Amino acid sequence: MKLTAVFFLLLLSLDISAFTMGDAINIAGRQRMLSQRITQAYILRGIQPSAERHEKVFSRSLQEFRRNHEKLNTFQGAAKIKGQLMKVQKEWEKFEQITLQPVSKESATRLFEQSNTLLSDTHAYVVKLQLLAQHNSAELINIAGRQRMLSQRIAKNYAAKLWEISQDNASSGLQQDLAEYTNRLNQLLDSPLNTPEITYNLRKARDHLNYASRGFEGEMKISEKRQIQVITGTTDLMLRNMDVVTEQYAKLLDSSALL
């Protein structure tokens, strides 16, 4: 029994020690994305209450945010900026309380607003991690990770606009996010640190953006149900693709730390 406990503690210590700065920036960046993905799914549950997909995205994203926060809490390499992580914790608790309520336009509006506050604090934590890393590739991880967030904030603003929640903010936010995603994507494509694999994945992300933009601009003559599927499906492709790119940049950072 004692040997089993010792073995478990050894595995736990190895897992913690294997958690790198690249991992931390990557995971902290996912928290930004999840704040928007959870809100998007919450709103879509109100628009399409019988759609099982939205419920799955919602519950899985909540669970992942909690797991990620626990991982970041154990990262000793960021002990100097623990205060910022505590701010994230406080805003997350407010956010989570709203997600537990039945979906209504009122609760969705409050979650929409709280998601912006949570996003701001999670972003501040990523920036502080980037500064601790002191390497050019850390900035690329941050930017690529922000692209994941933007893909989900684009979908969140689209859903809010569709359900007539915070319409002015949703409409202007949607256009700003599309413009920022394009500009940041071009910035990443211009990086001299890119490998051929990274460049290939960035070009795929550009193709996905071009396809999604057709839906936002009203070029697709399809039903609302089908349009929701196209927009959320395409922004999910953008998310997955940028997730791969973010991990590729994280490996660049970790490999440079070993030199």
Rank of each mutant, 00 (worst) to 15 (best):
L9R: 15
S13P: 09
L14W: 08
A18Q: 08
D23T: 04
D23F: 05
A24W: 01
I25Q: 02
R30A: 11
Q31H: 03
Q31V: 03
L34R: 01
L34P: 06
Q40N: 07
A41E: 07
Y42N: 07
I43A: 05
L44S: 05
R45E: 07
G46N: 12
H54G: 02
K56C: 10
K56W: 03
S59Y: 13
L62Q: 08
N68F: 09
F75R: 01
K80F: 09
Q89G: 09
W92H: 04
F95T: 00
F95Q: 01
V103D: 01
S104R: 03
E106C: 08
R110Q: 14
L111Y: 04
Q114M: 04
S115M: 03
T117P: 12
L118I: 03
S120C: 10
A124M: 10
H135K: 07
L140H: 00
N142S: 11
N142W: 05
L150P: 05
S151T: 09
Q152W: 06
N157S: 06
A159T: 04
I165F: 05
G173Y: 02
L174R: 00
E180Q: 13
L185P: 03
S191N: 01
P192S: 01
L193M: 04
L193Y: 10
I198E: 02
A205M: 07
A205D: 07
S213F: 12
S213D: 12
E219L: 14
M220E: 15
K221A: 15
E224Q: 15
I231S: 09
T232H: 11
G233M: 13
T235Y: 03
M238F: 05
K251Y: 11
L253K: 02
D254S: 03
S256R: 12
S256G: 06
A257L: 15
L259S: 12
L259P: 12
